[in-house]
Design a protein around this nucleic acid. Structure first.
Lengths: 242, 242
DNA sequence: GCAAAAGTGTTCAAAGTACACCCATGT
DNA sequence: ACATGGGTGTACTTTGAACACTTTTGC
């Protein structure tokens, strides 16, 4: 049985899933002083979407979110936070689903389980972009990073979901920084500052930021980092206890 | 057709609801310097529960929460906030459901829609207890206020849901105070302070609280309130623009 | 020495805390 | 008058923003 036969079988029948509920993951990745978002593009369409999935009948909600994240990035043990449930009655996108499936050579019966209203539970994650290995799902042909401030138009209400995730992230940045997998093992204060500036989309005062971030008491100073540049070498830091 | 026949019919068949999803409402009410919670007690059982409900197929999630609130309190246009989704696989309470139904003379078929895993979306509301007219639902015989710090053991994971709601409320108190319907039309600063102290479960310094709450810029001073007590009369306040 | 970036110090303002004092009210 | 609770003032501490100064590095 080829992989494609599996895929057709899966989508043409009603899988053993929690009906009418989906998960959407806003996966933030940081690199090159840019905050990026992981998006899928469905085969033979111009439809971009957040990585998402469904919940198996015997699967915790949070595990389902972790699974979606792992399937798309290969990463495990990642900090994931639930931020909102989107539940308007007009979350029903029969025609778009039909086109996505058509792009994969799959014909949907009128009573297909996707032909229904769905509520979607939003999760967000923050990762070190360089550690991820993005992988499209069966229906999409690309799974790539997009600059947060150059996001294409997304299917369904995914632009709204992304916006809400970003708001939540901005409010939670300080408290959640420890659990984040957004930075490499060791890093300079300047790198964290760039991260903050990118997430908040505003410039911060270097000297004050330094004190503020150190005062959180979550950083441990390691050795200096000789960059080869004609200036004072910054210290490297890591999160305490890691 | 008697009302009881309707009830039996409703619960013995699969109603047109979003399957496997429920709503639970943590309804906080303030009165007599006490923070209370609205709880149901199911007929002919010792089971206490948060007011809850299901989502009609053609109903927004937030409207469903508002409807549950109105059905139990008679109140409309109330501030409601979604705070968490509870989605563990063990949220499946066949035996308890069976007993609740049995208490109402209803026999559940083995494939009844409640005999399944449910995820539950938590909402919380804050109301002026004296404005509410609690009304049991069809399956319960009481719908009453319980002191927050004397909560009985609740069914399912409702104690956990309540705890999470309280944590969210404590963090959001300042920002959400305006939208709250937790106080009467007009009130004294002391009444708000009692509210804060009850919610936070700690004593606050009177003089400082006064300034802090006034500095929020959301209160408008009305006339004095002659209490008849042997002390200076406090001013009454109302929320600006109400 | 000089430019560039890192690290530290200084100053001022805002916000939060502790506590004292005065004011109004009914007995 | 005085006890009681409401309202305001004052002094101190903490937090945070603005900006100057010093240190380190490679050319």
């Amino acid at each position: 049985m080829t992989e494609n036969t599996d895929l057709k079988e899966y989508w043409e029948n009603k899988p053993r899933l929690l009906p009418n509920v989906s998960i959407d993951c806003v996966i933030f990745g940081f690199h090159d002083n840019q905050l990026k978002i992981l998006l899928l593009k469905y085969k033979n369409t111009e439809y971009y979407a957040l990585p998402g999935g469904f919940i198996n009948l015997e699967e915790d909600l949070s595990d389902a979110a972790l699974r979606v994240l792992e399937e798309r990035t290969g990463l495990r043990d990642i900090y994931l936070e639930q931020f909102h449930v989107f539940g308007k009655t007009d979350r029903r996108y029969d025609e778009t689903h039909r086109q996505i499936m058509a792009g994969n050579g799959i014909t949907m019966k009128p009573n297909h389980f996707l032909m229904n209203r769905f509520i979607s539970i939003g999760y967000y994650a923050l990762i070190d972009l360089s550690k991820a290995a993005p992988k499209p799902d069966g229906l999409s042909d690309t799974c790539d990073w997009y600059d947060l401030y150059k996001i294409p138009s997304l299917i369904f209400d995914h632009n709204e979901i992304l916006q809400k995730a970003l708001e939540t992230l901005r409010l939670a940045l300080d408290e959640k920084l420890v659990g984040f997998n957004l930075l490499p093992e060791t890093f300079t204060i300047n790198e964290i500052q760039k991260l903050y500036e990118t997430v908040l989309n505003e410039k911060l005062v270097r000297s004050n930021f330094q004190r503020k971030i150190l005062s959180l008491g979550i950083l441990e100073r390691i050795e200096k980092k000789m960059t080869g540049a004609a200036n004072k070498a910054p210290y490297l830091y890591k999160f305490i206890g890691e």
